[in-house]
């Protein structure tokens, strides 16, 4: 699990990406590179632009300026057809799992296979059940509706859906938020396992340091819409950066002042 040499083209490269909503600048010039096959964890407080960054890479939001390259190709100006094709490379686990509640569990997992790749339903169902097995769920869960599942099980189904059509890049949006510590660790291990099995590039955003330590090859810290530190996961405790130190140890005192008053 070592990062590729720097001479190769990075899997994802962001340069000077900015995005504002109304008067509020959420991304303030993001520069970030993710090498092929590495697992990058982006840490940062609430409202620092983590989710907006992921959604900008996926094209769910259009950045105001800057460049986002995937496999060396510029993606910020793609038309919807090309965007759909690009998104075949991506899988995403959403914070609230975002399962389709009108469909049974197996169809959720098989969705990308049936709709995106036009696979016959029976074949897609077999794959879906296999993927559910990979995240530790039994075949009888397949026929249930997502609303019948617990939060942890929904996250697992979301993970199975994200890996179902074997993406090259997987995004995890706060994968452990809202789970108890044991279930959080189960999800962390599943993430590590799935990413390794697929040989995928992974980007995780989280403020859960236990999760970050478990998943990350490399860690980046985002603060006020900028990446202020990147480094190896093992260097996280002696980063030499006061902001990172404060965040990693969860202290109220330090250079990061909590914004109590809304902007």
């Amino acid at each position: 699990m070592t990062a590729s040499p720097m001479t190769t083209v990075p899997k994802i490269a962001l340069k000077g990406v900015t995005k504002h909503f109304g008067p509020k600048k959420v991304l303030n010039g993001i520069d970030l590179e993710v090498a092929k096959g590495e697992s990058l964890v982006v840490i940062g407080g609430s409202g620092t632009g983590k989710s907006v960054m992921l959604k900008s890479i996926l094209g769910l939001l259009t950045p105001d300026s800057g460049s986002i390259k995937v496999d060396g190709e510029e993606t910020t100006r793609l038309r919807s057809r090309e965007r759909e094709k690009l998104l075949h490379k991506f899988g995403m686990l959403f914070q609230g799992a975002a399962l389709f509640d009108s469909l049974p569990v197996w169809e959720n997992v098989a969705f990308g296979l049936i709709q995106g790749e036009h696979m016959p339903r029976s074949q897609a169902k077999e794959i879906a059940i296999a993927k559910l097995g990979a995240v530790g769920l039994t075949p009888d869960v397949a026929e249930l509706s997502p609303s019948e599942l617990s939060g942890g099980m929904q996250k697992r189904v979301g993970l199975a859906r994200a890996i179902a059509d074997e993406p090259e890049i997987i995004f995890f949006d706060e994968p452990t938020t809202g789970l108890d510590p044991i279930m959080a660790d189960v999800i962390n291990e599943l993430i590590v396992q799935c990413v390794k099995d697929l040989g995928a590039t992974a980007v995780t955003i989280t403020h859960d340091m236990a999760s970050a330590r478990k998943i990350a090859d490399r860690v980046a810290m985002i603060y006020q819409g900028r990446i202020i530190w990147t480094g190896h996961a093992r260097d996280i405790d002696n980063s030499g950066n006061a902001y990172v130190d404060q965040f990693v140890h969860g202290r109220a005192d330090g250079p990061i002042k909590m914004q109590i008053k809304a902007l």
Partner: peptide, 13 residues
């Protein structure tokens, strides 16, 4: 609940 975003990431318009 981000299901519409999820549709997009599954290459479905």
């Amino acid at each position: 609940t981000e299901q519409i975003d999820a549709l997009s990431t599954l290459s479905t318009n």
